[in-house]
Amino acid sequence: LVRYRTISKIPQITLNFVDLKGDPFLASPTSDREIIAPKIKERTHNVTEKVTQVLSLGADVLPEYKLQAPRIHRWTILHYSPFKAVWDWLILLLVIYTAVFTPYSAAFLLKETEEGPPATECGYACQPLAVVDLIVDIMFIVDILINFRTTYVNANEEVVSHPGRIAVHYFKGWFLIDMVAAIPFDLLIFGSGSEELIGLLKTARLLRLVRVARKLDRYSEYGAAVLFLLMCTFALIAHWLACIWYAIGNMEQPHMDSRIGWLHNLGDQIGKPYNSSGLGGPSIKDKYVTALYFTFSSLTSVGFGNVSPNTNSEKIFSICVMLIGSLMYASIFGNVSAIIQRLYSGTARYHTQMLRVREFIRFHQIPNPLRQRLEEYFQHAWSYTNGIDMNAVLKGFPECLQADICLHLNRSLLQHCKPFRGATKGCLRALAMKFKTTHAPPGDTLVHAGDLLTALYFISRGSIEILRGDVVVAILGKNDIFGEPLNLYARPGKSNGDVRALTYCDLHKIHR
């Protein structure tokens, strides 16, 4: 019993810090008490220290592992850092350059016999395009090294910054494609005289377009951006097909006994025919423009016929181009109408809503002055909100995010209106959640004399007048207030005048 009563005193000691020596009952000389009392004092002292730490809000209350900052290894790049964003855009520009100039170089340097010394005699450094290609190869190699040090988000939505895990993730992902696209074939085969082989191998750079397509997928929600990307894709495919079309004609031209190829026909049409040795002929500019003209006309199913396939190889390629053109029509131009419709969806919704308003007016036989006010209010409210119901949009977000959005939407009023000066951010967040926005066209009466005042109004834009009878008592403008002081009276009061809008007004109100 003594032991039980001794232990039962522990909660009292913990909360009230009572010393055991003052209790005459606990001072009985028993061996059990002498053993338990020192333990009680020690526990009391420890609990006292913990309570003191909690009340003082000291940093040592938290466990040590929670006080440590997340460790980022040296030379690790955050995937959302500004440097990584700028670097990704730079790589994107280099990939676009590669997609345009690599097929052009591979096709127009394929057994090209233009006048001038061969590239091997001039030297590697004197070729501007080769120098640019070398810079692109170096940048792609540097990009691989950067990807080995860039964080990523795993399946659990955690940012991984450990170098080993980053390397394994990159090896399992895009490393092989990036490595093949970054191989400097110019340096590996330079001086061997195989410019045709170098041009063909350099087309491996186009593998990076797969990554670019995935990154550009984030802009699919913007109709104008999608339309622009589709047109660029169409032009890029036409450019690639033009390079292939020229390569076919250029390879067949020296081996044909009869002059029936499209390059021969082009030379005869523009007065620059090929001679018996295969030299001469149109310039590279004429060849490229004509090839691009043929691919565009074939892809769009126009086909004027002034550039036509004559050999079997050219006919087979033309059939493939027609098939590609039909697929592009289905996948690209078939979506253009939907994209344009999405661009004008706001206008369509406006006309639909206006039609419903006019049908309501016609069905209920609203008189002319009231009908005009109804239409003007709808037009003004639509121009202010673009038909978007803010309350319906915010309803799907958590309250903390709703408060931040409301604070942002009402920031101008909260910053410049005098009653809100000096208020804490928590108070402003709470008030912003209570605001209701209303609009009024010129001549609209917001409050009639004798109406119950259940709200306090803040003028965000425009001006109003307060009338008693036919006498203008006051004219209020931006950041002015009218209405009933909230919670100042037990019952809502009545208006002693009319409140009429002089201009288009936007008002925020808080109800009782």
Rank of each mutant, 00 (worst) to 15 (best):
G305T: 01
M139P: 01
P282E: 01
V289H: 03
L90N: 01
V210E: 08
T347F: 01
E64V: 05
F378W: 11
A204C: 06
G396V: 09
A235Y: 01
A167T: 04
F435M: 11
A225E: 04
V212Y: 12
L343H: 05
C126D: 01
E195N: 07
Q341R: 04
F397P: 01
T445M: 09
L229S: 04
A247N: 01
I248L: 03
Y219C: 13
I96Q: 01
G199V: 09
Y344Q: 07
T311M: 01
V160G: 01
R208G: 04
I270A: 01
L428G: 02
C122M: 01
N391G: 12
T290K: 01
L92C: 05
S326H: 01
G249F: 03
P163G: 09
I189D: 13
F171C: 14
G261I: 01
A242L: 01
E112A: 12
A291Y: 01
T150L: 02
K287H: 01
R342I: 05
Q379W: 04
V210Y: 09
V289W: 01
M179S: 12
L370S: 01
Q253D: 15
A224Y: 14
T233F: 13
V321K: 01
W75M: 12
Y288C: 01
A440L: 08
R208S: 13
S258F: 15
V180M: 13
A130Q: 05
V142A: 08
G303F: 01
R214A: 11
T311W: 01
S276A: 14
K172Q: 11
H351C: 03
K215Q: 04
K272P: 01
Q341G: 10
R362C: 02
I284H: 01
E64I: 10
A381H: 15
L145N: 01
A99M: 01
E121S: 14
T438N: 09
E375Y: 04
V160C: 10
T352Q: 11
T120W: 01
P82S: 07
S283G: 01
I183F: 09
N368S: 08
S220D: 08
T102D: 02
T438S: 11
A432S: 08
K425M: 10
V86M: 12
S297M: 03
N154E: 13
S105Q: 15
K436G: 09
L201T: 05
V212R: 03
E157S: 11
T311S: 01
D404G: 02
D444C: 08
L374R: 01
T102I: 08
H364A: 08
T120F: 04
L446Q: 01
I146M: 03
A392K: 14
T98M: 01
S283F: 01
E314Y: 01
N410Y: 07
L263Q: 01
F435C: 05
